[in-house]
Structures are given as C-alpha cells and as structure tokens.
Amino acid sequence: MTLTASDLRNLVLAALALAVCALLPFGGSGYWLGIGVTIVMFTALATSWALFSGPTHYISLATAAFFGVGTYVTGLGFEVLPFWSLIGIAGLIGAVLAALVGFATLRLSGVYFVIFTLGLAELVRQVITWGQNMTGQRGLYVLTDITEAGIYWWLLGLSAAVYLGGWLIGRSRLGFALRIIGDDETVAAHSGINTAFAKVMLFMVPGAVAAMTGAILAPRYVYIEPSLAFAPILSFQVVIMALLGGASRLWGPLVGVIPFTLLLESISSNFPNQTTLVLGVAFLVIVYFLPRGFVGLLEDARGGLRKRAGGMA
C-alpha cells in the first residue's frame, strides 16, 4: 500500500510530537517527569488495550497479569541479561500467555472472557506467592542503574511502537477483519474470516505490550512482590482511561489517559482513601454519559457543526 499525502503529514506530525515528548526529562522537574512516566505508561497500556477491545468489544482485565509477569521477568533476569533483552523476553512471554488465554476463552461469550481475565492476575499472583513460600523468598530486589529518565524514554519508545503498530494493523487485512468481526461475527465467518485466529492474534498485542511495560517499570519499584506487581486496580484504570477517551480511534485512549492520570494524581494526594470511589464514579459516567468516550463527544460536536453549516448553506 502506498502512503497518501495526509498519511505522510500525520507521520511527520507524530514524529515531531514524539521528539517534543522526548525532551521532558531535560525540563528538570522530577515531579513532572514522574507524571510523564505514568502518562506514557498508561498511553502504551490503554492504546494497546483499545486496539483489541475497540473492534471486538471484549473487555480484557488481564493487563495486571501481563504487567506483573513482565516485572518478574526483569526482577529475575536483570543480573544476568541486558535490560533491553529482558523487555523483549517479557513481550514474548506476554504474547504467548495472551495466546493461551485467548484460545481458551475468546471463542466464548464476553462475560466469560471478562471473568477469566479478571481472575488471571489473581491466579498468577497466588501461584507466584506460593512458589516464593516454597522457596522461602519474600520479594525481589531490582537494583539497576536505570534512571527515571531512562524508564521514561523506554516507555515513550514503546508507546510510539504501539501507535505505529496500531496504525499498520488498521491498514491491514487483520484490522479490516476485526472491524467486520466487531460488526457481525456470523457475517465475518461467512465472508471467509477465521474469527478465532484473528481475535487471538490481536489479543497478543496488549499482552505483549503490558508485559513489556511491566519489565520496563520494574527498576522503578526497586523491590517487587506479588501483591504489588499484580495489583488488579491497574487493569481497571486501563479500561477506564481507554473507554473514557474512546476505544474506536487509535488516538482515543490518549485523550482519556492524560486527564484521568492528572485527576487520579490529585485525588490520591488529597483524598488517598477515595480513589476507589472515583474509579467507580468514572465507570458510571462512562456508561451513562459518555458511551463512546471523548472521541464520541468530539465526533458528535463536529457532526452537529457540519449539519448546522449544511442547513445554512
């Protein structure tokens, strides 16, 4: 496929935006760098989540499981292998794990999938805790010389890769197949699409990305233990941010990530006990007021303007 002029323009703009984002660590503010890390982390997680859940409408709560597995890859391997290879290994393990989960659950209805992914993090956590009890360990120290800025750049690179990958998938047969599946799975099968295969392939993307994110962030934690690495709240935050922004567009989740990260940041520093309540309210707001996220709001506004302009002409 060839690139049109607008494709080229978008690519150049995206590259510029990336370059500007990459300058953040030179700003000198540790506080804003910390927020920056959180934002790029959730951008990678929520965007890859929406790549799968946007077209298929399956709600995955497996992010925490993949993320935790990723942190453990770094935790166990950072003394033996170079950091970059650990990220790769984490991605590979995440993708394989996602494929296994996908084969077991994606041919069934959405409810089964939600329940299974919700419990997956808990399942892996219990098994690792048990393994540690058997060997008498408690947690893992991850002592590396990787700085906060280094983590930020790694995550930024990962987010860029997610965007590029998502853009390419959107233009591919796989992307088209998923739009058809999202519309009508029976038609998809009768048009010659291997629906199960397409869904599993795509589910491997958020699996790999979440595991890589975990691997990159492990040095930030310094000390990792199962209840920290597999905190289920992460899965929910990712779902909220992606849906708040809108899962139907590649850039949608980003629109949700930035305001929600800032909101959670201010809530957790001012009212640390109320974060759960905020998450709950956010879910309800999405369902009742923003079913298509900010993206839907923008599109409606634009459609309304166009209609009004058309009426006047």
Partner: peptide
C-alpha cells in the same frame, strides 16, 4: 459489566 463494575467500586469506596 461496566455499570456493575462502577457500582462495585462505588460500593467499596
């Protein structure tokens, strides 16, 4: 699913 998750979080909160 989303609405009852919301209720669940509100309940916990």
């Amino acid at each position: 699913i989303l609405a009852t998750f919301g209720l669940s979080f509100v309940g916990v909160g």
